[in-house]
Amino acid sequence: MSDFKALSDAVIKGDINAAVAQTQQALEAGHNPHDVIDKGLVAGMDEVGNRFSKGQFFVPQMLRAAKTMQECMKLLHPLLKEGDVVSKGKILIGTVKGDLHDIGKNLVAMMLEGAGFEIVDLGVDVPPEKFVEKVQENRPDIVAMSALLSTTMPAMPQTITAIEKAGLRDKVKVMIGGAPVTEKYAQEIKSDGYASDAGGAVNKAKGLLGIP
């Protein structure tokens, strides 16, 4: 919808002032906050993710766009009614046991959030038991795991096994990523998906949940 193009463009550019002004204008014009989020902010972030995946956008541009969206959300959040469904799905994310690297994981979490998913970030060095406990507690749609070291990759199948043993494997999709991780490895350990970058992770998450 062309009503929201200026807002999407401001998000893509990472122009906080313009995006906040556009958000205010849209609300004053009587638009539903959900539409402002979906057709304005999320649409902008989708384009950011696409450009990043194609190598047309770089990490700082992605960070700046996400920051812009967050500032707009501060205006929109109070207007959303209790119980309103705004999330595309809930994703539990963490760097696996023994691994302290968080940069890649944070970029993926940020882009998933920008795409409209609800994120529960468990941080780094997350043991399989904790993934299981948090799946039970949060009932996510997807569990996303990150590893930067070849030595910590085995914690991924260990976590999947732990989720299986807890009888939760059919309740969640699993996706993995990180520098040494490959599509082939994802298949070997029976992860439902793999993505090589933050933009790809968004597409993969949507694919796993059947979101167009």
Partner: peptide, 8 residues
Amino acid sequence: VQPVSVDT
């Protein structure tokens, strides 16, 4: 060393 793209 960590990336300046994430934090200048």
